[in-house]
């Protein structure tokens, strides 16, 4: 009995000290749901525009080689700008100000590098004899793009989408500092109020979501890859 109560005691202590964030999550459940909802709608908006924009740009630069260097140059510059700066710069643009549009625009810019690079790499990974054979058999440029190049590049493009989704989910937390009410807010307010439970709750939720997303998208990536492209 004594032994059990000692263990129980230890657990309670451990819980109070280190797992208080669980109680916090339960207590503030409604807020967790609201922030998660906001977080995801932002990520989905960003991904929607990024897919359209950056896949097109990726396809464009794989066709017009001269543009590729310019695009990668811009991408590299965007990459050395800290996320907080990019958000900050957008809110000072008079038309935009604090809010979702600024947050979304900054994140779309961040999505450029991984998306464009992977589309380009994917398209370039198609070996020329395959295209030559396709042309020789009478496939039109459109058929070559949609039946050869994109399907073969697709696993690499999807890997880019996966990296981007995970990255955007992570960086979106920083948008809390320009007024987004998302999962970053627990961390932001937690630091301001020196509330350990709040910070850990925020960090844990965000990390778990990121890891889960990466895992699920990884599974999908494996599933949609043609067995013919899976050779080790």
């Amino acid at each position: 009995m004594v032994f059990f109560s000692a263990i129980l005691q230890w657990f309670t202590n451990f819980y109070d000290k280190n797992l208080g964030f669980i109680a916090f999550i339960i207590r503030r459940w409604e807020q967790v749901v609201e922030y998660t909802y906001n977080h995801f709608t932002l990520v989905i908006t960003v991904m929607f525009f990024s897919l359209i924009l950056w896949i097109s740009v990726g396809l464009l630069i794989s066709r017009y080689e001269k543009l590729a260097n310019t695009a990668f140059g811009i991408g590299n510059i965007l990459f050395v700008i800290p996320s907080i700066s990019l958000f900050g710069i957008f809110i000072t643009i008079p038309m935009l100000g604090l809010g979702r549009t600024s947050a979304a625009l900054a994140l779309i810019l961040y999505a450029m590098m991984p998306m464009v690079r992977n589309v380009y790499r994917g398209i370039k990974s198609v070996e020329w004899p395959v295209i030559e054979a396709g042309r020789g058999m009478g496939m039109s440029a459109k058929q070559i793009l949609f039946q050869i190049q994109i399907p073969i590049a697709w696993p690499i493009i999807f890997a880019g989408i996966r990296v981007t989704v995970v990255m955007i989910t992570g960086i979106a937390t920083v948008a809390t500092f320009i007024g987004e009410r998302n999962l970053g807010r627990f961390i932001h307010h937690g630091i301001a109020r020196e509330s350990a439970d709040m910070i850990i709750a925020g960090a844990v939720i965000v990390s778990v979501i990121a890891i889960l997303l990466d895992y699920i998208l990884g599974k999908i990536e494996y599933k949609i890859t043609s067995p013919g492209l899976k050779r080790e």
Binding site: E127, P129, G134, G136, S140, P151, G228
Partner: peptide
Amino acid sequence: DELRREIGYVIQQIGLMPHRTVEQNVSL
């Protein structure tokens, strides 16, 4: 394109579509 569909074409590197089965390749 239509001209080429009437002419068989074989190259040294073959250029089989890696993402398609043999059957799909032949029926292209």
